[in-house]
Nucleic acid binder design. Structure first.
Length: 481
DNA sequence: ATGTTC
């Protein structure tokens, strides 16, 4: 496929390259990252460019790789009247996202008790496939929770009131539609609040070394104010509930598409007109699943605080453990952008892509109004993660979006062939990183060598000006699903 | 990602 470099770190595949493309497909990457991208990324992002009502261009972030229907790292904006909503553009794990906590502790405070802390975190935060949480709700109460999101959690004793203003959307998106949820989705979801899940979902204890602070003044505004400070990063989503919502609507959409006369290059791109009854029902169900993920991260935050309090023998507030931010990277949202000189409301799909709004916007927390929206980028458990801030440049280039992680380069199967989980665990322990995992096989799949170099990926978004580096975190402890 | 095949 002809891929034209139209600017530094910007590649475009013109509509002439595939029948049915309404707009160009754009991949944001360095020459080296582009060369390393699988053929699936090119095929999938050009398929996305064929979807009805897509506006301007289909985008793929530098951490992009092959996914279900859309590439992971895909961003696409649709006209609300003529466009579609597609579960493949959001991901099975609806509102998979990141939360970051700061602490008053330093590495020196934590090292002597790190093993006890990781053990306690592993006990307090259930992880693994199919695991149930400490919060078990009946159906009606679970429906309340997915309508109320993180706010419901705080009202029921999980977390602090002041957490809420530091979450994207305050941790609760309006418009959850209980009637759009299947029995099976509710049954799967109701006992999973406060659980980590599996795969690349994790909870990590990290250190901010002074040489990893790129902008001291912005770091301070984000709560990072001392040398070798400890942070806690969390990556998880909506568990079986969101997965079931995705499964339910893929099936509904596959038959609805025939009625609406929509054809796609790929069955995995099942979609429905956004304004159709089916499209609106999925949107209402997706909002409920997104809220369940905010609630999940809120309950886990409560459990993290309890684990720290157990180990340090003081009230969790004395240790800090304040929320820095919480942001989704698998979601569709209605946002306004200027397109061809006209302000338009669009349905922005982000699938493995993070919102990255600039300063002075009303939809980011007051305290970050002068620095921009925090963007939390999780790396592999061996190599470190980043805190960035967003920029107004995303309004022009990326429908308010940036990357979400480092991106895999090796399949799970290939990673398992190269190393055993227990070997990796010992190896990491020798390097001062304690890992607790529900599955040794799962651990091997997450080895650092299976991921792209996170610095290389983050440098692309910084050069493009869509996000700016503030801090790099290095892991010292990890709880893995 | 996922009660990893209703």
């Amino acid at each position: 496929m002809r891929t034209v470099k139209i600017a530094p770190d910007v590649f475009e595949i013109p509509p002439s390259e595939k029948k049915g493309m309404h707009v160009p497909a754009r991949i944001l990457a360095s020459d080296a990252l582009l060369a390393g991208m699988d053929e699936g990324v090119f095929r999938q992002i050009t398929n996305v460019a064929c979807l009805p009502g897509i506006v301007e261009h289909a985008l793929c972030m530098p951490d992009g790789h092959w996914g279900y229907g859309f590439p992971i790292g895909g961003v696409a904006a649709f006209d609300l009247d003529r466009g579609v909503i597609s579960p493949g553009g959001i991901g099975f794990d609806i509102n998979c996202g990141m939360r970051l906590l700061r602490t008053n502790l330093t590495e020196q405070d934590v090292r002597p008790r790190l093993d006890a802390l990781m053990t306690r975190l592993f006990e307090r935060v259930p992880s693994g496939v199919g695991i149930k949480g400490f919060v078990r709700l009946d159906r009606d109460r679970f429906v309340e929770a997915v309508c109320g999101g993180a706010r419901w959690c705080v009202d029921h004793g999980y977390g602090r009131l002041e957490d809420l203003e530091l979450l994207e959307e305050g941790g609760c998106i309006p418009g959850a539609e209980p009637s759009a949820l299947s029995d099976r989705a509710l049954t799967r979801g109701k006992e999973q609040l406060g659980t980590l899940g599996s795969g690349n979902h994790y909870l990590e204890v990290q250190v901010v070394h002074p040489h990893n602070v790129y902008d001291e003044s912005t770091a301070r505004k984000l709560g990072f104010d001392r040398d070798h400070q400890i942070a806690v990063m969390l990556h998880c989503g909506s568990r079986g509930f969101g997965h079931q919502v995705g499964t339910d609507y893929l099936k509904i959409f596959q038959s609805a598409m025939k009625r609406y006369g929509i054809e796609t290059h790929d069955r995995e791109l099942a979609c429905a007109p956004f304004k159709s009854p089916e499209g609106q029902q999925y949107f209402g169900a997706m909002v409920a699943a997104a809220n369940s993920a905010f609630a999940n991260r809120q309950v886990i935050t409560h459990q993290i605080r309890a684990a720290f309090a157990d180990v340090f023998g003081v009230d969790d507030r004395e240790l800090g453990l304040e929320v820095v931010y919480d942001v989704a990277h698998n979601i569709a949202k209605i946002e306004e952008y200027e397109v061809e000189g006209r302000r338009r409301k669009l349905l922005v799909h982000r699938k493995g892509a993070t919102r990255s709004f600039g300063p002075a916007r009303s939809d980011i927390p007051d305290r970050y109004r002068d620095i921009g929206q925090p963007v939390i980028v999780g790396g592999s458990m061996e190599t470190g993660s980043f805190l960035l801030v967003g920029s107004d440049e995303t309004k022009i280039q990326t429908f308010g979006s940036t990357l979400h992680g480092s991106g895999r380069t090796m399949s799970r199967v290939a990673a398992k062939k190269r190393i055993r989980g227990d070997e990796l665990q010992r190896d990491m322990a020798r390097r001062g990183i304690i890992v607790k995992s529900a599955s040794m096989r799962g651990l091997a799949e997450e080895a650092g060598f299976a991921y792209k170099n996170i610095s290389e990926v983050v440098d692309v978004v910084e050069r493009l000006g869509i996000s700016r580096k503030v801090i790099r975190f290095e892991p010292i402890g990890n709880v893995k699903g």
